[in-house]
Simulated scan of single mutants.
Amino acid sequence: MSPLRSAWWRRMATIALGLGTGLVLAQTYPTREVRLVVPYSAGGSSDVVARVIGGELQRLWNKPVVVENKAGASGNIGSMEVVRAAPDGYTLLVQNDTMLTNLALQGKLPYDHQSDLTPILLVGVTPLMIVAHPASGITDVASLVAASRQRAGGLSYGSCGVGSPAHFVMELFRQKTRIELQQIGYRGCAPAVVDVVSGQIPVAAVSANLVLAHVKSGRLRAVGVSSAQRYAALPDVPTLAEQGLQPFDLSTWKALMGPARLPDAVVQKIGQDVGHLLKTPGVIATLEQAGVDIQTGDAAALARVIEADATRYRELAAAANLRPN
């Protein structure tokens, strides 16, 4: 046999062995404890997603599913732990789009989001919402634009921080309306909510679930939501796109990922099981209460979402000349 033909057969044998190993692994998976790594602090929406899914998978699989919060370095510490893990499905990552805002702001991450991680499943999205204090007189996009044009240098608004998804939403808003806006970047969404409710700032852009109660009570007025569809918990609040800013679709997402080279059969097994759980009424209700609108899709769909958002955040950061603080 020629060397070329011999090399071809070795390659085919290696591929067949890998496919066979993946299929066998998927048929028996899981046989032991599965770790869900959340690269952010406990109590946030990503943590809630992990604990809801983990609890349901533990019942389904009859194996321990442990949630571990590995916060730090804007999510990089926990993400790197999964990047370094064996590609066997026993260490998984509950990730959100902070990975991509960090990439756009910093220019690079300590890992490659394309080659070092395996997309498994999109779980859901949480839109950002622009809200205003009632005394501001701002009730919608038109009145926000008018108020900003009346002030030299533009209206001040609070966000969840420089380079946060809320910051990117307002940069896109600024580009589409051609107005000036002055960001007050807080360390997280919660203090921005406190200041807009108290009237210290007239407007804020924050995760929609964090202002749900304030909008319902009338303490804040909802200007609009950043997603393509209306927010399920506040269906009467129009989207920004509905108010003339088309296209406008920029939400925070939650997704399940694994290390690179995770076998396709294992990816499909996890995706199918989690996808089934996300259709159950109890899970839907719990996640909606946490502000997550469930949106599922296979690994290929998640990969498309990630790449589309990576491009969009990069372009917004470049246009706004955003730099790390």
Rank of each mutant, 00 (worst) to 15 (best):
P3Y: 10
T14K: 15
T14W: 13
T14R: 15
I15Y: 08
G20D: 09
V24F: 08
V38S: 05
Y40T: 14
A42Y: 06
D47A: 13
A50V: 05
V52K: 12
I53M: 12
L57A: 04
K63T: 13
K70D: 01
K70T: 10
A73I: 10
I77G: 05
I77Y: 02
E81G: 11
Y90M: 00
L92D: 11
T98N: 13
N102D: 14
N102T: 14
Q106D: 11
K108N: 12
Y111D: 05
Q114K: 08
T118F: 02
L121Q: 12
V125D: 11
V125A: 12
T126Y: 02
I130F: 12
V131H: 04
H133I: 07
A146C: 03
S148C: 10
R149Q: 15
R151E: 11
A152W: 00
G153R: 11
L155V: 02
V162D: 10
F168R: 04
V169L: 01
R174M: 01
K176Q: 15
Q182T: 09
Q182L: 07
P191R: 00
V196L: 08
V197N: 06
G199L: 03
V211L: 09
H214P: 01
V215Q: 01
V225D: 02
S226H: 11
R230E: 08
P235H: 04
Q243K: 02
D249G: 09
G258V: 11
R261M: 15
I270D: 09
H276E: 12
T280E: 15
P281T: 08
V283S: 11
A290H: 07
D293W: 00
L302I: 05
N321V: 06
